[in-house]
């Protein structure tokens, strides 16, 4: 039997990080190391956790020994209240540093968890975007620029560092115990919606995302992949399944009301994100199905109801 491979996971202390860690922890071919400036609550005993900032010198020491077999990078900051400079420095500068370490210390595998949001919701989007579609999210959302830039960084790295197997995963809206924007939105009650708009949405269970990450760690896999869940439904059906009351707002009023609520601290959604409940932003996951053999295991209903499951 070969020795287990060391996998470094950034953002391991977050909820999605813990779900991914739990999934990979079950796999005997991996030993895990966490890299996150937060404390790792509920850490299994055999997982080493480095509680350091990704940009610090100590983060480099994690890679220096040269025995890291893979990096799973999911430690991105999505705090809408943080200043642009902070978010930029953490996300973009941090990612650049990590990729640099991977090249210097010959990490053979890099998995970056981006998002299908980078394509941007637009009225003229085709129903299913392929991986080659332009990343236009930043056109309407300045706040998304960092995420688009990280995706570009990782995609460029795929071509720049040919000896490294880089995988960029762009999952659709992740639902579950995670505290990301779509899950938090669906946990509101009543849920504000836009009057007269009901786009189709794609969702994926957090455990299916973990399985996609583990599929991406397989040797020989490199490239950019959209990761889709069990399918797509209208937003109103998701809300009905969850039994939520809705608060339809006419869209000309929505933006001023919402920016007021954001500034007053009542809501934590930037106004620009309204486009996600107005226009379609769906992706074609057939490449991941073909190359990674990935298919979501949770049904649509299970995925939607996962929002209300206790963590």
């Amino acid at each position: 039997m070969t020795a287990p491979k060391k996998v470094v996971i950034t953002g391991i202390a977050g909820r999605l990080g813990r779900v991914v860690a739990r999934a990979l922890h079950h796999d005997p071919q991996f030993v895990l190391e966490g890299l996150d400036r937060r404390e790792f609550v509920g850490r299994p005993k055999d997982v080493v956790h480095h509680q350091v900032d990704v940009r610090s010198k100590k983060a480099r020491d994690v890679f220096r020994a040269g025995d890291v077999a893979a990096l799973v990078h999911m430690g991105l900051m999505h705090d809408p209240r943080a200043t642009a400079a902070d978010v930029y420095s953490w996300n973009v500068a941090g990612t650049m540093k990590l990729l640099e370490y991977c090249q210097t210390y010959r990490v053979p595998k890099v998995v970056v968890l981006s998002s299908a949001d980078v394509y941007g919701p637009r009225p003229d989007n085709p129903q299913f975007l392929s991986e080659d579609a332009p990343l236009l999210a930043a056109q309407r959302f300045p706040q998304m620029r960092d995420l688009v830039e990280i995706d570009h960084l990782a995609s460029t790295f795929l071509w720049k560092a040919r000896e490294i197997e880089t995988v960029v995963l762009r999952p659709v809206h992740i639902l579950g115990s995670v505290h990301n924007a779509p899950s938090n939105y669906l946990r509101l009650d009543p849920v504000p919606t836009l009057l007269g708009f009901d786009p189709m949405v794609q969702v994926i269970h957090e455990r299916d995302v973990a399985r996609a990450v583990s599929a991406a760690l397989a040797p020989g896999v490199r490239g950019i992949y959209n990761v889709v869940g069990p399918g797509q439904v209208p937003l109103s059906v998701v809300l009905r399944e969850l039994g939520r009351r809705t608060l339809p707002i006419p869209h000309p009023l929505a933006k001023p009301l919402w920016s007021l609520a954001f500034r007053a601290g009542v809501s934590s959604y930037p106004v620009a994100e309204f486009d996600f409940i107005r226009y379609v932003c769906m992706v074609d996951g057939s490449r991941a199905a073909k190359d990674l053999g990935f298919a979501a295991r949770s049904s649509l209903r299970e995925t939607i109801l996962a929002v209300d499951e206790p963590a």
Partner: peptide, 28 residues
């Protein structure tokens, strides 16, 4: 392409089986 920006028409057109006029949609 402007239809998805119009309230109600935006989703009714899709429920009734209409699609946004892009070559990708047509080919699929």
């Amino acid at each position: 392409h402007f239809v998805p920006t119009v309230p109600f028409a935006s989703y009714l057109m899709a429920r009734w089986g209409q699609i946004i006029g892009t070559p990708e949609n047509c080919r699929r």
